[in-house]
Every structure is written in structure tokens, then in C-alpha cells.
Design a protein around this nucleic acid. Structure first.
Lengths: 165, 165
DNA sequence: ATCGCTGCAAATGCTTTGCAAGTAC
DNA sequence: GTACTTGCAAAGCATTTGCAGCGAT
């Protein structure tokens, strides 16, 4: 195995097919296409419709319902994560997985409340918090989702004037 | 009507009326009822429908659409927070506000991935993370939403009880 | 040849909106 | 009296489901 390839790596297509078969599911082109789209759009937070449109460019015959059904499978296989930015639709992105199947602790999402831009912040600083929770409540944290709202570097400068109405 | 008196945290009804008038909105009974329901169900993560049913007990004439419209107003006034536990509906809870209008840093939500129970964890340990983000990216965090997934004490105990008391 | 999978359309479920009547100010 | 609000029903949207034909094994 590679020593320390923390750079994003493609899900091995063979491994994906194997995962499908293990679940008693069939390997279809549509399922491959959806996974490929999500891989080629890392950190893009695609909606189901965006995935659909993206796949349709090369494979116009695909149906939106199939995209939704495939998303559910990918979720169950822990190959993708779902994120919700409160804009009315669910979004999806490839999960960061190491070759041994251990999940990278995710990045957090920085959401600018002025311009709406979403950026990322890779981080593992939540361990202290998770330890504190275990100690005080007995709750064993295995995953987390962190959304941080604020002003991005560009919008932060003009922060002084708060609108009063 | 439920009498839930935790004076320091109740939104002063007069202050609420003032906030409405400041926005050019009228003070109506329905708006008061919805706020009261949310106050009497602190940390209960109510859905719009649950608020509706709760209000309907004493005021059967209220309509669901009015509840939705009132929720939007309360959100704009920062009197409530929206939370989504991926169960298909939005949930709402009273925001923790001090009398001077400064927002309490919220609690985090601990979501058990086995039994689905949602508990809370009051905490402000995210300051180190927010400072790190400011330093590295220039993003100025003013609010955050943290969901922690894992096993609650009851469910976690069953998984590892054999090895540890 | 099985039986799952697909695309389409219809259905679902939460939320929003149009409208006429009602209410705050 | 003038807007703003309300309740109802209808509409809107994202997502799910039923079904007949198609496709992987």
C-alpha cells in the first residue's frame, strides 16, 4: 500500500462493483456514471438534479429517479456524505475514504451568511470535545457534521455597516 | 395553558410585541401562541405540525399555514433556531438569548445512530477551532451548528459491555 | 430465463402561496 | 378605513414509488 497518500483517491471501480455484488445488487452503467460524476466533482456539494444533468451530458437516457435511487445506495455503502445548506435541497459529496476503509475525519463547511459562498476547512480539532462528551454523558461519538456560519474573508471587511431597518 | 416559568430565559412578551412593531408587523394572538408553544417546549425540537397541534389544543381555529408564516418571522427575529435531523422535516427550538440580546452559544445535538434519540450538550469548546479558522482562512465565524452522531450511553453500553464495566 | 433495474409518470409529503374574509391599529 | 393577517385550498418542489419493459447474470 501507499505510505501516506492523503490526496484524494478515486474509488476503485472494481471495488465498487464488488461492494454492489456483496449487497446482492447489480452492476449497471447508471450506477457507475453517478459515482463517476460525484468523483469528478469533489467538494462541489452536488444536488441530485445537478448529478442528473451532469450524467445526462454523456448519457441522455438516464432518469432522475435512478439518480435518487443510486444516491441511496451510495449512502448505504458510505461512499458519499449528505449535506444540507438550508437552501431547500439535499447535497452530496464523495466521502473521504482511505484504502483500508477507514474514514478520513471530514472537513467542516464554512458558510458565508453574506454572499452564501461555501468553503471547506479540513480539521480534526474536535477530539477534545468528543472526549468531554464521552466523559460527561457516556455518548460515544463516531461521526460529526459541523457547519460554521460567518463572514468570508471578502465579505468580512465590509462587516462594519450592519443594516438597520 | 402551561405555566413554564424560567423568568430569565422567557422572551418578554412586551419585547416580542415591540420587535414585531419595529418590523412593521402586527401583534396577533396566533403569533403569541406559536411563540408560547415554542417556549413551553424548550429543547424539544418541534416540527411545524407539532407546533400546530400544540396550539390547536387551546385555539382550534389556527391554521397550519399561519404556523409556517409565524415560524419564518421568528426565524428572522432570531428568536428560534432551525434544526434538521434528516428525518424529512425541519424542526425548531427557542434560541437561547440573554436579556441584553446576546446569544448564548448553543448546545450541540447528540444523535444516537442506533435508537435515534437526540440529546443535548451545552458547550463552548469550539473557540479554539474558530480561532484556527480565522487565522488560516480569514473566515470570521459568528455561529455554528454541530451534530454529533454516535451511540448514546444505553446503546453504546450494549456494544461494549462485555469488555468493560 | 430469471429477477433486479430503469425511465416515465403519478404520487407523496413538507412547505409556500393566492385569495376573500377578518382583524389590528 | 387601511393595511396587514388569517384560514382554507391549491400550488410548488424535492423526493419516492408503481409499473411495464429492459438488462445483468
Amino acid at each position: 500500500m501507499t505510505m501516506n497518500e492523503s490526496k484524494s483517491q478515486m474509488v476503485d471501480p472494481e471495488r465498487f462493483k464488488q461492494m454492489l455484488r456483496l449487497k446482492g445488487l447489480k452492476v449497471t452503467n447508471q450506477r457507475i456514471y453517478v459515482l463517476q460524476t460525484l468523483e469528478s466533482c469533489r467538494n462541489k456539494h452536488l444536488t441530485a438534479e445537478e448529478i442528473y444533468n451532469n450524467v445526462k451530458v454523456d448519457h441522455p437516457e438516464i432518469g432522475l429517479a435512478t439518480v435518487y435511487r443510486t444516491i441511496q445506495i451510495l449512502k448505504e455503502l458510505h461512499l458519499i456524505d449528505r449535506i444540507n445548506f438550508d437552501d431547500g435541497t439535499e447535497r452530496y459529496e464523495i466521502a473521504e475514504i482511505l484504502e483500508d476503509g477507514v474514514k478520513h475525519h471530514h472537513h467542516h463547511h464554512l458558510i458565508c451568511i453574506k454572499c452564501g459562498k461555501v468553503s471547506e476547512f479540513a480539521d480534526d480539532m474536535l477530539e477534545a470535545l468528543e472526549s468531554a462528551i464521552m466523559l460527561k454523558t457516556g455518548f460515544h461519538v463516531v461521526d460529526h457534521e459541523v457547519k460554521l456560519y460567518g463572514y468570508c474573508k471578502e465579505c468580512g471587511g465590509k462587516l462594519i455597516e450592519e443594516t438597520k431597518k
